[in-house]
């Protein structure tokens, strides 16, 4: 569904993403993890057209979309959400979702009806008339998801939709994402909440300082020494292993 090959992006002297590649097969949930500042959101921006890569290619559904405008990429069926949520604050939840629906539907009534359907799917049906500006952070994250979903994507890029949510809210959202996958939408997600990564994803990539340092099944990847060191610092893997040995 999505193939990123050797993509590079620098801001001045900072290599935000260096020679990163990843592959997302159709119908799967693939996650992208890595410590803060690793370049995950930059990679999303490169894929979705918000930033133009210095080199490398992005192939979506068999078409080269490298450097294409974001709205064209969305119309082709690849949509992203934002980590820092961007609700249309003065509109209601229904109107917000309808903006996404309008990407495929010209008629206003049909777009609003579609919004109702999407809201039901993500569990926002009780909040349809609420102003998006009055939503809690959990509500806003859900709204990001709903709006993106209303554009009828083939591939959904979710940028930390769980961040800032409490345990209950996360437990509510995980099945929602699973349902979305079951309707045939492929998902690539950035996530720090490991509970969600482990339970949702079929495959995981780890980005650190702009470089892909590991990939594989979520369980294998998270126990890899490189990954542990990327998160916890040099020597951490060794110390952890010692501690585990002692405890055993």
């Amino acid at each position: 569904m999505l193939e990123v090959q050797g993509i590079n992006k620098s801001f001045g002297g900072l290599h935000a993403v260096s020679d990163a590649s990843l592959f997302v097969p159709a119908g799967k949930v693939v996650s992208l993890i890595g410590p803060n500042g690793a370049g995950k959101t930059t990679l999303f921006a490169l894929i979705s057209g918000f930033l133009r890569p210095d080199s490398g290619t992005v192939i979506f559904d068999g078409t080269d979309i490298t450097g294409k405008a974001p709205h064209l990429i969305c119309q082709m069926g690849l949509v992203r959400t934002f980590q820092v949520v961007k609700p249309f604050a003065s509109l209601t939840v229904r109107e917000n979702i309808a903006v996404g629906a309008h990407t495929r539907i010209a008629d206003r009534k049909a777009a609003l009806a579609k919004a109702d359907g999407v809201a039901l799917l993500v569990g926002m049906d009780a909040m349809l008339e609420q102003s998006a500006g009055d939503l809690t952070i959990a509500g806003r994250k859900r709204l990001e998801l709903a709006r993106a979903l209303a554009t009828e994507p083939k591939l959904l890029l979710l940028d930390e939709v769980m961040a800032g949510l409490n345990a209950t809210e996360i437990a509510e959202l995980v099945p929602v994402i699973r349902t979305i996958r079951d309707t045939g939408v492929t998902i690539l997600l950035i996530e720090h909440v490991m509970q969600a990564v482990m339970s949702l994803s079929d495959y995981t990539y780890v980005l650190n300082q702009g470089v892909m340092i590991a990939e594989g099944e979520p369980k294998t990847v998270t126990s890899s020494p490189d990954v542990i060191e990327a998160y916890l610092g040099h020597g951490a893997a060794e110390r952890l292993a010692k501690m585990e040995a002692r405890d055993a």
């Binding site: 405008a69 709205h71 959400t81 934002f82 604050a89 509109l91 903006v99 990407t103």
Partner: peptide
């Protein structure tokens, strides 16, 4: 609807497929 979306948040509008 798309015009209001542009007013409210241009990046979000772009991401949702609107030619702002």
């Amino acid at each position: 609807a798309q015009l209001v979306a542009v007013r409210e948040n241009e990046d979000a509008a772009l991401a949702l497929g609107i030619n702002t």
